[in-house]
């Protein structure tokens, strides 16, 4: 009887048009990579709805080295870890810092990138004081569910933190003048200061890294059960570090804005 019930349930699930990635336990032939597609220069969806950016090139390179077929899934940042846990893809490559808080949920591969953290504001901003006292009552924007959001929450309680679904929307509101500051990593902000934010905004100061909140750097995130996948990526990442191919891609995509 129980067998029959199982059979029925299995049949129902299959009929429901469900896609099961079959028999992956032993060997990884195909890897689904989740990214955000709204965080240039790391990953970005262009007008042709194609993904581009450092991480897109980099992960494709890793896949080449691992000899696996990779497919990309675009997922909003807010749901990027839940969707990994819910098996919508197998690894997150999305400029994600390997923090302790996230380690409770997922495992991280080796760190492949580390960038400073900046605070940016309108050109008219005087001085470069970014202490919590100096920013009291100011509107400070960051992307929600990021280390920067947690950073604001921990140290800037008296400011007016605004969290956005994507970094780009926060940038837009800085241009529009709704925000007094935004905090994010230097590369995303350099991209902004070299591009759309050229006329409006400038670097105010570099944010000192807080070990507990910011973590050691950017890494891929996998489910805790997928140890084989983590090992595979760790090895490929080490190779790209050794042969300089990671550095080459970083140089291609990352143009840090001139610091004043």
């Amino acid at each position: 009887m129980k067998g029959f019930v199982r059979f029925l349930a299995a049949a129902a699930l299959t009929v429901a048009g469900v896609t099961g990635a079959l028999a992956q336990a032993k060997e990884w032939k195909e890897v689904r990579i989740g990214t955000e597609g709204a965080y240039p220069p790391y990953n970005n969806l262009n007008a042709k709805k194609e993904l581009e950016g450092y991480e897109i090139d980099y992960a494709n390179l890793l896949c080449e080295k691992m000899k696996v077929k990779c497919t990309w899934v675009v997922q909003d940042w807010d749901g990027i870890i839940p969707a990994l846990l819910a098996n919508k893809y197998d690894i997150i490559i999305a400029g994600m810092n390997a923090t302790d808080e996230r380690k409770k949920q997922v495992d991280f591969t080796a760190v492949y990138n580390k960038t400073p953290i900046w605070m940016v504001g309108p050109k008219a901003t005087k001085g470069n004081e970014i202490t919590p006292a100096a920013l009291k009552g100011k509107a400070v924007g960051a992307q929600g569910s990021t280390i920067h959001a947690n950073f604001l929450e921990k140290f800037y309680k008296d400011s007016n933190p605004r969290l956005y679904p994507t970094q780009e929307e926060a940038n837009l509101d800085l241009i529009n003048g709704r925000l007094d500051y935004i905090v994010a990593d230097a590369l995303a902000l350099s991209d902004f200061l070299n591009g759309k934010g050229k006329d409006c905004c400038k670097l105010i100061a570099e944010v000192p890294r807080d070990a507990a909140i910011h973590g050691p750097g950017v890494a891929g995130a996998v489910r805790k059960s997928d140890t084989a996948l983590k090992a595979l990526f760790d090895k490929a990442i080490a190779e790209t570090m050794a042969d300089g191919s990671n550095k080459k891609l970083e140089d291609k995509w990352f143009k840090l804005a001139a610091t004043n």
Binding site: I81, L85, K104, G144, S145, L163
Partner: peptide
């Protein structure tokens, strides 16, 4: 960016999963 009930919940979820 408003922290209404839904916004506060999303924040709680984003931090605790």
């Amino acid at each position: 960016t408003l922290f209404d009930l839904m916004g506060a919940t999303r924040l709680a979820f984003a931090r605790s999963f």
